[in-house]
Design a protein around this nucleic acid. Structure first.
Lengths: 136, 136
DNA sequence: CTTGACCCCGTATCTATCTACGGGGTTTAT
DNA sequence: ATAAACCCCGTAGATAGATACGGGGTCAAG
């Protein structure tokens, strides 16, 4: 353990473009890594996890700004525990909301595949309807 | 019921910009509405649900292209049930994956708030680590 | 029958998130 | 010690998803 990575290695392991790494660094999503005497970046091995986390969170509909907020929850050591808790709770609410909606979508889709299980025409199976339950 | 909406009303009810409605129509996410003699669009009342669905799905990380695929599941009447089922199952897998990741994030966050419950400094509560369980 | 709010369309502009380019140093394998 | 492969930086270009602009019709109230 404790291997360090070049930007290219990190990009490959994180399954993103090399330029994306530089972009994330610029945006403060990845801490600025130390440099070798050559000027090359030298990333710690666990930077891979951070890159993947960013990508996954994005796929869940979080903007990079929001991802940064999530990451800052664990990084910011000068914020009080209470402050962190408050922000974490807000994120938690976001997450729970997403889960709820996804579960409603899942239910509708399962209903759709059950209803239209291999033959009948569909017309208007209620994918949309099962959302929009109550929120405004 | 059966009221029809102007584009402006639809935008307001759907909580999006008016231009966004035209954009969605252009992109095939909203069916082209009939026009009044004036040329004004006349949307059915339930277009609101569609707009909201689109927004919600986006917040869950689906691109507009993917949203369209979801919507087409219910609209396309000339696809066989089996075809629809296959595509629905694919979407279902996407959704379940998202739910899984969100649940992992939720767990980590809850752990974080529990651990750092109002006082201790945090340092490196494992938000990131609990993701990246196994997928590649 | 005018005024303000609303709609039309086409086109241009904006933001977020990358991705590519170009000219140059560095490392590595032969 | 040289060629391939990699990295640096700054800047430009690409893509998705809106948003805005501008010149002009339309509708409803007074």
């Amino acid at each position: 353990m404790g291997e360090s990575l070049t930007i290219g290695e990190l990009a490959k392991l994180g399954k993103v473009n090399l330029e994306t790494i530089r972009y994330y660094e610029q945006q403060g999503l990845i801490p600025k890594p130390p440099r070798l005497s050559s000027g090359y970046r030298s990333f710690p091995a666990d930077a891979v996890n951070r890159v993947r986390f960013i990508k996954q969170a994005q796929e869940l509909g979080f903007s990079l700004r929001e991802v940064k907020e999530l990451l800052d929850l664990q990084v910011n050591p000068d914020s009080t525990g209470a402050d962190v808790k408050q922000r974490a709770d807000a994120k938690l609410a976001d997450i729970e909301e997403k889960i709820k909606i996804l579960q409603a979508m899942k239910k509708s889709l399962m209903n759709l595949t059950a209803t239209c299980n291999g033959k009948s025409s569909i017309g208007d199976c209620p994918i949309i309807k099962s959302l929009n339950s109550d929120k405004g």
